[in-house]
Amino acid sequence: MVPKLICDDEMADVHAPATSDKDSLKVTIKLSVEKINAINRICASYDNDPEELISVLHETQNTLGYLPAEVQEIIAHNLKISAAHVYGVVTFYSYFTMVPKGDHPISVCMGTACYVRGAEKILDELKKELNINIGETTPDQRFSISCLRCVGACGLAPVMMVGEKVYGRVSPNDVRKILEEYREDNCEECKPTQQL
């Protein structure tokens, strides 16, 4: 199989070891050259070592935000492993995601300590407020909801996180207030980007 990688704005031909010309396959990759280069750099920084796949995926996800199929193909190609192997690893670990999360990813801890202190109610409230389900992103891309298994702050149960910020002892009534902090007009982080 010879994956021919074609990117959007420019043709970037990434060479793959040819096994059999007959099975040659064209994969159209909708990624900018910069992104492809970034991925290549990350792979190279781990010597394209297949054993470092998980570290490579971590770093790529940190850079790009998520790991869509195109990205996985490039990584597979660099580390000289099959795309199926990469896909298998990405889907095995809950930390990796193939869909972009919202600008403010919300995670609710569903660990035991949080569960007995009412995490379910927080989750229900969030779903109601944002009108999305677990694993989904709001249509405006602002918020997404996911569940975590214990962030190690059990003393503060129930715990929810918005991005990196941890909110402890959350009650269902707090949910709206917390979300309010991140709505367009209030959110410190978002303001600069809006002015651009």
Partner: peptide, 8 residues
């Protein structure tokens, strides 16, 4: 890999 939820 402290995976047991509720232990830290």
């Amino acid at each position: 890999d402290e995976g047991d939820p509720g232990a830290f």
